[in-house]
């Protein structure tokens, strides 16, 4: 299934990382990252664990604060704001406004266990976007239908399988209509036989949406199918990037060659196996 759409090469970026660094004490997780993501573009981040890919997403979702550098969302500063002609640290109000354009799906679903499925999806529509309840419910139902869970609306998260939970989490994020969606290793916590249903939903979403996507994944086949661009991160830097065929078939840097070779040698080229061993 070819889900790729033509991305406007000339359009201004929806997200722009500029000289972004992140350190925990002495440990440098991200080292001066520059990265533009265009509207509607699907990028996949691959790389060894600890290479900083998840941190890159978490900085954009405002779950963590960059040590230095700036992030722009749709031309507007995320972590900073202008006050009296100077850039100062953003306050919660500013973050709240800019963050509305970003959505995220987590490795461990993070559904709200005390709410049933429909409430999980509706909650932010009603209380953040302040939609009337009836409209929020209609839109949530529609979204649940899209991920194939319309018959589970009154179940609680604990009554669902991992794959179903992750599909609910995708619906919950999608219904907010973000301009860019972050998928942080969304299949890594799933049993191998449940990975497919989640990937299908994401492919489906990718094929019809104008939404940009950042996929952090170990599923190389999936990355190849869906991404316009694949980025290989290692040691807090983007080592190599380009179209999936180029990155996955004709790696140039030694580190990427080694990374891919290790993948194939130990686990074959099968995504399922890698998920099964819980490789990060």
């Amino acid at each position: 299934m070819d889900v790729k759409r033509k991305v406007e090469e000339s359009a201004p970026p929806i997200v722009r990382y500029k000289g972004i660094s992140k350190a925990y004490g002495d440990h440098q997780v991200l080292d001066h990252i520059d990265l533009d993501i265009r509207p509607g573009e699907k990028i996949a981040l691959i790389g060894p664990s600890g290479s900083g890919k998840t941190t890159l997403a978490r900085l954009l979702m405002t779950l963590e604060k960059p040590t230095s550098g700036t992030i722009e969302v749709n031309g507007e500063q995320l972590w900073h704001m202008e006050r009296k002609g100077k850039l100062v640290e953003a306050d919660e109000k500013h973050l709240h406004r800019v963050r509305g354009q970003i959505g995220m799906v987590f490795q461990h679903f993070n559904l709200f266990p005390h709410m049933n499925i429909i409430r999980n999806v509706m909650e932010a529509l009603v209380h953040v976007q302040k939609l009337p309840k009836a409209e929020a419910e209609a839109r949530s139902l529609e979204m649940l239908e899209r991920v194939g869970l319309k018959d589970r609306t009154h179940h609680y998260p604990s009554q669902l399988s991992g794959g179903q939970k992750q599909r609910v989490a995708i619906a919950r994020a999608l219904v907010m209509q973000p301009r860019i969606m972050l998928f942080d290793e969304v299949t890594s916590a799933l049993d191998p036989e449940l990975v497919g249903e989640v990937l299908d939903v994401i492919k489906n979403v990718a094929s019809e949406g104008e939404m940009a996507m950042m996929l952090i994944t170990h599923e190389m086949d999936f990355a190849r199918d869906i991404a316009d661009r694949v980025l290989f991160t290692d040691g807090g830097r983007i080592v190599e990037q380009g179209p999936p065929e180029q990155i996955l078939e004709h790696p140039r840097s030694e580190r990427l060659k080694l990374f891919l070779a290790r993948f194939r040698r130990h686990f074959g080229d099968s995504a399922d196996v890698m998920t099964a061993v819980g490789l990060e």
Binding site: M61, T62, L63, E92, H96, R99, G100, I102, G103, M104, F106, N110, L111, F112, E123, A124, H127, V128, A169, R172, A173, M176
Partner: peptide, 10 residues
Amino acid sequence: EASIALNMTY
């Protein structure tokens, strides 16, 4: 984290 991602205030 999920609440922040859904843009909920504190």
